Simulated scan of single mutants.
Amino acid sequence: MIARTRPREIEHKAEGASLASQVLTEVDRRSEQIILDHLQPTIERFGLALLTEERDDDGGRLVAEQFWCIDPLDGTLPFIEGRPGYAVSIALVGRDGSPLIGVIYDPVEATLVHAIRGVGAFRDGIAWTREASDDGGALTLFADRSFLDGQDGDAAVAPFEQIAQEMGLDSVRLNATAGAVMNALGVLGSPPACYVKDPKPRGGGSLWDFAATACVFHEVGAVATDINGHPLDLNRADSTFMNHRGVLFASNDALARRIRAIRRGGN
């Protein structure tokens, strides 16, 4: 069971561009081992490859028909700070990068979300469909802490205020407290909403941060693409990072189109 208190030991990894990608706790390793104990028989029986955050990428995902893509504890920063916003994320991904199965567990709320390609999405075993977007109120913008790096809050949020105005909404509500997995699920839970990561030189989250939620979004009919509207590159050959094309999760197509247009205009 995932601990709900702050960890006793925190290590630092020499990778990634943000603090969130550089910290590791004993719970990350314990969670990974529990997951692998359950998945190892499927790896052996079906010839699946494995990609997990806490182990080196052995390249097997580029050869096998499918691979397990695991983040044993996404949102390590909120976890070590004793705040909600962390989750366990497990996905089965095809060699072509298609998310086939997605499983997310939120230990704080004891909520399990899962999706199977072509079957549907489920929350605690109950079919989950996309919630309708409100016609008024606020646009919720989910973001990582690094969203504000190098710019003030007003400048970062300004493009989304323009989008909100175009959509007849009265404000933008910024939420930059959770990890990538819970940010994405937040989009589905509070429409109209989005979670955006622009392309950048390095970092940008990793395959395991987005694979499971991408499957959920596909099954509920919401948007999970790169910043230009192409499918997420969930089996990138040259890296496990997603910085090259960015990430866009949106609660509906109209919002996604506006974000892409304004992002292209800013380049």
Rank of each mutant, 00 (worst) to 15 (best):
M1N: 05
I2H: 09
R4W: 02
R8E: 14
E15C: 13
L36Q: 06
D37I: 02
E44I: 13
A49M: 10
L51Y: 13
R55L: 12
D58Y: 09
G60P: 07
R61H: 08
L62C: 03
A64G: 12
Q66G: 04
F67M: 06
F67N: 01
L77S: 02
P78R: 03
G85S: 05
G94L: 06
G94T: 04
R95Y: 08
G97K: 02
S98G: 07
P99G: 11
A110H: 15
A115M: 09
A115C: 11
R117Y: 06
G120Q: 06
A127T: 15
S133C: 15
G136F: 06
G137S: 05
D152H: 12
D170T: 15
S171L: 05
L174C: 08
A176H: 11
A176Y: 04
A180C: 11
N183H: 10
N183Q: 12
A184Q: 10
G189P: 04
V196F: 11
K197Q: 10
L207Y: 00
A214S: 15
V220N: 04
T225A: 13
D233L: 14
L234T: 04
L234M: 09
N235A: 12
S239C: 14
M242K: 04
M242H: 05
N243G: 03
G246L: 02
L248Q: 02
A250D: 13
S251I: 03
D253G: 10
R257Q: 15
R257G: 14
R260K: 10
R263V: 00
R264V: 12
